[in-house]
C-alpha cells in the first residue's frame, strides 16, 4: 500500500489538523488535477491523472478517522478483518442500539438523538486511537493491540451511524 501520509507530506500520526490536511490536498490538486493538463500530451495527461487519483485516495483515507486508523495499522503491519470480533458486551450494546433504532425509525428526532449518543461513543474510541498511536515513542505491540480493539469498536459504531443516518432520509 502507498503511504497516504507520505504522499501528502504529513506526519504519520492519528491526530491531524483537518484544515492542514485540506490545504495540502488543495495545493497538490492545484498541481496535479487533470484540468491542469488538458493541453498536455497524452502521456503526461495519463501520468497526472494517476497521481491525482492517488492524492484523492490518500486524502479520503486520512480525512476520516476510521480509514486513517486503518491506514496506520496497515503501515504497522496489522489489519482488521472479519475475524476480529468485538467483546460480547459491545455486541450486546450494538444490538440494543439496533432495536432502539428500529423503534425510532419514523421519528427523526429520536433517530438523531440515538445518532448523537453513538457519535459520542465513536469520539471516545477516536481518543483511544490517538493515545495508542501518538505517544512519544513508536507504538509497541500492546499499544497496537489497543488501537486495533478501538478500531473494531469504532467500525461497529460507524456501521450503526450509517444505518441511523440512512434512516433520516425518510
Amino acid at each position: 500500500m502507498t503511504d497516504p501520509f507520505e504522499l501528502l507530506g504529513l506526519a504519520r500520526r492519528f491526530s491531524l489538523d483537518r484544515a492542514a490536511l485540506e490545504q495540502r490536498h488543495r495545493d497538490l490538486s492545484r498541481t496535479l488535477h487533470p484540468d491542469r493538463y488538458v493541453q498536455a500530451p497524452p502521456g503526461e495527461r495519463r501520468m497526472a491523472l494517476e497521481r491525482a487519483v492517488a492524492v484523492n485516495e490518500a486524502f479520503r483515507a486520512l480525512r476520516d478517522p476510521l480509514t486513517r486508523a486503518e491506514a496506520l495499522l496497515t503501515l504497522h503491519g496489522l489489519s482488521v478483518g472479519d475475524a476480529d470480533r468485538p467483546a460480547p458486551a459491545l455486541l450486546m450494546e450494538v444490538m440494543d442500539l439496533r432495536e432502539a433504532l428500529d423503534e425510532a425509525r419514523r421519528s427523526p428526532h429520536k433517530v438523531a438523538a440515538l445518532l448523537d449518543q453513538v457519535r459520542a461513543r465513536s469520539r471516545a474510541e477516536e481518543s483511544a486511537l490517538a493515545s495508542a498511536f501518538d505517544a512519544d515513542d513508536a507504538p509497541d505491540a500492546a499499544a497496537l493491540g489497543r488501537a486495533r480493539d478501538a478500531l473494531v469498536r469504532l467500525k461497529y459504531f460507524r456501521r450503526f451511524e450509517d444505518e441511523a443516518d440512512a434512516a433520516l432520509d425518510y
Binding site: 492542514a20 490545504q23 495540502r24 498541481t31 503526461e44
Partner: peptide, 23 residues
C-alpha cells in the same frame, strides 16, 4: 517535471505555516 511541481507544492508551504493561515 511533475515531481518538481509536487515538491514545490509541498515545500511552498510548510505545514506549520498552513496551520497559521487556517486557524
Amino acid at each position: 517535471r511533475m515531481d518538481r511541481a509536487v515538491q514545490q507544492a509541498m515545500k511552498g508551504r510548510a505545514v506549520a505555516e498552513i496551520e497559521d493561515t487556517v486557524k
